[in-house]
Design a protein around this nucleic acid. Structure first.
Lengths: 364, 364
DNA sequence: ACCGTTACCGTAAACGTTTCCATAGAATAA
DNA sequence: TTATTCTATGGAAACGTTTACGGTAACGGT
């Protein structure tokens, strides 16, 4: 089960040098010697402990400052057994939504004086296993995983007994008591998106996105289930074979998928793309095959990232609240790191429609 | 998979806990005890040293495997004094070009089995100081700095005596013998961009970008100097007050700057934006103020990142060779880490024009 | 029988911290 | 006064490794 492939990069082997020539390493010992105090006292000053006289604190701090001393983080972490960091695993290569969340997390963590430690991995299962192994090697205090469905990684995640937060649906079902999850209510939001299109009179609606070839109602992607449900409620049966085209979360992929979809189903008057990148690629594809947006085909995106505001036409989209998502993740993780407590699974009900020029009433 | 440590601020402070409850930490000692060999031998097995019998190697490896033992990286790094990582500092919040280089670096490093360690900082001077401090705290083997001009950070960089690579111009002038630099020949490329516009008959050309309020010929931004030079050679004197508008590297900023520029100089028939993001924002702004691209105003961007291919209109731009840049950076750094040697400063002559729909001949 | 190799392995010091424990002295309580 | 607590500090062990050093056993050559 667990193979001994220590993360290649961190494997012994090339060690380029011990001390660099001419490098003078100031240690806590030096500070102690210079200040006349003991190592213990210096350490207490560094860590802002109480049991230090004002005089000693002043003097030692002064010396630390003027020598530009920085405690050796490795020695520290060694003593503290687990590192002082939170690890974040980002799965998916160019997923703008995750990047956006990541950015929010960075900002929040900065406020909390927390260190984060990010691992970018691609979507192969193999890499998830490696990432989990690496993380167990780093020994972080907790983990945030941005990366979609983890059903296939039960084993990997079961090995981790650290507080862990996922930004994905379906984590609850796994039943690990150390995994929390926060996600926008994709089912509702997807339904909402398609209802928007329906309200403009569209009935021939296509869907773009969601890797999976699984086209049943049990499709794992909440946005798509919601979208189909919205159609259902209007008495429209969604034809997966005809009006659905899977693609990954990129403009490139959206471009190609849209071309295929509209080639196959030229009578579609609207498209729901499950990410903004996909939508933008789709819009370009539509133009290239001679369909006007929104006159001939309406396009609605998902995510609501800033760059959609500057496209031509401006993209209509469903905005997720990345700030709230990030905040929830961080808060839950830190709380559970410090105080333990049960994992939670929360569906964030917040999302909103962003007006755009890419959606218009259906033509008669 | 590459490990990627984003350090927000690795200063002492909150330490959340020692051992996590119920966590059993397997150490080299355990492996030694179980296997019946000594710690030293186990370590030699882990490190693939020669002086170990095949029998011992087998047996110990087996035990390591079945216990899922991972050597503690902190203890290791402590012994090895300097970490096994290369630090990358990325300055600038949403700079797509740097992100692109970063991605290339990741790929190359993966091939080299190297660990990287990324610090994102914003553009304030303060953060540069912090980053440098943090980096000296991490003790990497070398540093790659993606972040524009560093003239204001002489002091910070003078403290670092590690191999260091910058992707910026002007590093040579600083005279630090541990700083290499690689950059596209911005002067030439800027000149080339404007020559393209000139070749389409444009003479009233505006320039967008380059934070600085410094509008002299000594302007630090090579692209702009080159652009102005190209005009000069045609006998056109560039009027900085009228036809130049500074902005940062984002669509938002480009949008606003373009609106200001065209508001002030409505007779411009072409705009050179020093990044694609800026260009895209500008195109949107132009549309909003009722100017058609390219019929009324041509726009040429810079960088040549993929997403320009999917905009409407497709963006004409000057592509930099990020792959080569990244390769040069990494190679130089690793070489100097291993063998020392002098720093180099290289201007990459490679750039190319990417056709697009945003540039057209000037209207009569 | 002796010596010199060689192959393998154990011991222990060291890396730079943190923290527990002990203690000296000061302050307080009796 | 003495006994007690408190404050500030030093000393030293420990964290999990790596590695220099030394030792043992086996073996071949003389």
């Amino acid at each position: 089960m667990e193979t001994f492939t220590v993360t290649v990069a961190e494997m012994p082997g090339k060690v380029y040098g011990q001390y660099r020539e001419g490098e003078i390493m100031t240690t806590i010992k030096d500070i102690a010697r210079i200040s006349g105090y003991s190592i213990g006292t210096v350490s207490r000053v560094i860590n802002n402990r109480a049991d230090v006289s004002e005089e000693a604190r002043e003097k030692i701090s002064e010396i630390i400052r003027e020598r530009g001393y920085q405690p050796n983080s490795n020695a520290r972490k060694l003593k503290q057994v687990i590192s002082s960091e939170v690890s974040i695993i980002v799965r998916g290569n160019k997923n703008v939504f995750f990047e956006s969340i990541l950015e929010e997390i960075q900002i929040i963590m900065r406020g909390y004086d927390e260190n984060i430690n990010v691992h970018f991995i691609s979507e192969t299962e193999n890499e998830v296993a490696t990432a989990v192994r690496t993380v167990s090697y780093i020994k972080p205090k907790g983990i945030i995983f941005l990366g979609g469905y983890i059903d296939n990684f039960r084993d990997e995640f079961s090995q981790i007994n650290l507080p862990c937060v996922l930004v994905t649906t379906g984590a609850k079902d796994l039943g690990f008591e150390n995994l929390s999850s926060f996600t926008t209510d994709y089912y509702d939001a997807g339904k909402y998106a398609v209802n928007k299109l329906l309200s403009y009179g569209h009935t021939r609606i296509g869907i773009l996105g969601g890797y999976s070839a699984d086209r049943s109602r049990e499709h794992k992607n909440g946005k798509i289930i919601g979208a189909v449900e919205a159609l259902d409620e209007k008495g429209i049966t969604f034809d997966f074979d005809r009006d659905y085209e899977p693609c990954s979360y990129s403009a490139e992929s959206g471009y190609e998928a849209a071309a295929r979809l509209l080639g196959r189903s030229p009578d579609l008057t609207a498209v729901f793309a499950i990410s903004d990148s996909i939508a933008l690629g789709a819009i370009r594809a539509l133009k290239d095959i001679g369909r006007r947006v929104p006159e001939d085909v309406s396009v609605i995106g998902f995510d609501g990232l800033t760059y959609a505001k500057y496209s031509i036409p401006r993209l209509a989209t469903i905005r997720q609240d990345t700030a709230t998502l990030a905040k929830k993740c961080v808060d839950d993780l830190l709380l559970r790191i410090t105080y333990g407590g049960p994992a939670v699974h929360e569906l964030i009900p917040y999302y909103e429609f962003i007006e755009g020029e890419s959606v218009a009433p259906v033509r008669q």
